[in-house]
Design a protein around this nucleic acid. Structure first.
Lengths: 213, 213
DNA sequence: CAGCAGACACTACACCGGGCAGTTTCTGAG
DNA sequence: CTCAGAAACTGCCCGGTGTAGTGTCTGCTG
């Protein structure tokens, strides 16, 4: 078996998960072959099966690992841009641009998310829930906390932080995600900036300053 | 041969495209098998290949056909709900709910869109562009026109119809689409209504009435 | 009758998962 | 430090399965 325990050399295991993330992200679950993953990891296919029971187990494993990394990256971006913001508009805009550039566009992290979204109907409900919880939902919670703090400091009007976070994500992020098909196609930097700016603009009309309701 | 011309009996051809839409939508491009499509159509596999050169041709063909139908359905919804609206809020809300229920959630139409989004990296650029143009982009244009008309009638403030349509779609539609993974998972009717209502609420704070900017 | 559809077998290929024998790498005892 | 032994890895193999696409003959139908 050796699906989770400390079986095998950890270094090989890491190489395998990294390779699986790359290949699953590039090809999608069905197209990705275990041979390709083994080759990408510089490891014998037999070794892959020493570490992971089967293809599905490997996929779900890297999916969960990936969602945690993605949420972590989100927390970093939040800390970098919003925690000590003074000019809310420019801080939110910078955050939105970096988020849009980092999460779906570039390799690895967001690419695997695309594979997961494509395969969602074939993922066990409990694993999917765990993925949502440690990834997207955690990211949204972190964003909500941050916005609430900005509200407390009087820079935003945030009666419902969860709702505000949802709106911010929709307005500044989903436009880019949709346009790039979650990172499958490139989106010009200029376009990202335009969408983020326009999104922040809309967001601030609803939640900006202590004047709005 | 016989990829597009009027080869074969049109009735069989329709059965094949309908079956392909169903199976591709349910299984995705890679998992869907030509045998399954032939069976679903109640037709021999040989007949499928008499009408369509290969799997990819069949997929792209139904993709384009589907996007046109989707845009048409959108125009119907717009005409039904917004063309003669008097109470903007309730009209927009009703439209948003029906759109969210129709497009991604239910079968056929939106399901194939999910397959296309999953396969986007393997679709020829010109076909993808054509799909975008006849489907999502056309739908957005129709919505923009409608919002512009509401603006002309003084019910909304719409300086840039295209931008307004983009925001409306993001706020009232993408939340549901994301939550249901573009129709792969069911979303409770109540949840749809909540998201649509909250989205319209946000939209009206930006574009509502002649007072806003 | 002419062309299209049906049924069925068939080729060619890719892939998952595992078996096996030999080799490398780590560990721990002397 | 040396060296045996265990554990992990490698490379190649094979079996089973699923699938795209084709060949071919028979039969229906306009």
């Amino acid at each position: 078996m050796a699906t989770t325990g400390a079986a095998g050399r950890p270094e090989k295991r890491r190489a395998i998960t990294a390779a699986a993330t790359t290949v699953f992200g590039r090809e999608g679950y069905v197209r990705a072959s275990m041979d390709a993953i083994a080759a990408e990891a510089g490891v014998s296919k037999r070794t892959v099966y020493n570490h992971f029971a089967d293809k599905e187990t490997l996929f779900l494993s890297v999916a969960l690992q990936n969602s945690a990394e993605l949420a972590e990256r989100m927390r970093e971006l939040l800390a970098e841009h919003l925690e000590e913001a003074v000019d809310v508009r420019s801080a939110l805009t910078a955050f939105a641009v970096e988020r849009a550039n980092a999460a779906p566009a570039a390799g690895e992290l967001g690419a695997l998310g695309r594979a997961i979204r494509a395969e969602v109907a074939n993922i066990p409900a409990d694993v999917l829930e765990a993925w949502l919880e440690t990834g997207p939902a955690a990211a949204q919670r972190a964003l909500a906390q941050c916005l609430a703090e900005l509200g407390r400091r009087g820079l935003l009007t945030v009666p419902d932080p969860g709702l505000a976070a949802e709106r911010f994500t929709l307005l500044t992020f989903h436009g880019v995600a949709e346009r790039s098909f979650w990172g499958a196609l490139p989106v010009a930097e200029e376009e990202v900036r335009r969408l983020a700016g326009s999104g922040v603009d809309a967001f601030l009309r609803i939640h900006g300053g202590p004047a709005a309701g």
